[in-house]
């Protein structure tokens, strides 16, 4: 029951190990994610590489390269941070840079989603379809 230390699965992501010796602000040239007014990218915001981003991969270095490369398929900000072992706020800053450069698109969910009954119903239906360990669906009992 060790929160924070998931067992590494076969082929799965490894748990976060030792923190990088490189301080986060070095990766962002001293800039920080602007959290003060709630405008920072939500953890679940979806990030996708653009065609320009893929084309630019050869010219991008280090973290920027890795972020665009991992976003060939849509990824949440949190997934990017975890997969690349980067600080969340570093990903936020760099993703904004890459978006501004046209190399990523960032899709921030509308805050109204929380109140959207049709979306909630779809999630509920999707969850109900998940079989439990005995192969019984929750809506069949």
């Amino acid at each position: 029951m060790a929160d924070g230390a998931p067992p590494p699965g076969p082929g799965g992501p490894e748990p976060v190990g030792q923190a990088s010796a490189v301080r986060p602000f070095l990766l962002t040239a001293g800039r920080v994610a602007d959290c003060s007014d709630g405008r920072s990218l939500p953890l679940e915001a979806q990030v996708v590489a653009t065609a320009e981003g893929i084309d630019a991969l050869g010219r991008l270095a280090f973290e920027r390269h890795d972020i665009v490369a991992v976003c060939r398929l849509p990824q949440s900000v949190a997934e990017i941070a975890a997969r690349l072992r980067l600080h969340l706020n570093v990903v936020r800053v760099l993703a904004e840079d890459l978006r501004a450069a046209g190399q990523l698109t960032v899709h921030v969910p509308d805050s109204g989603v929380v109140q959207d009954a049709s979306v909630l119903r779809r999630v509920i239906e999707g969850l109900r379809a998940i079989p439990d360990a005995r192969g019984v669906r929750s809506d069949s009992d």
């Binding site: 979806q46 065609a51 909630l120």
Partner: peptide, 16 residues
């Protein structure tokens, strides 16, 4: 998303 030069090839899912 509008600030991006081109729309992404892949449409990401709506995250809940």
């Amino acid at each position: 998303g509008a600030a991006a030069a081109r729309p992404a090839a892949v449409r990401p899912p709506l995250p809940v």
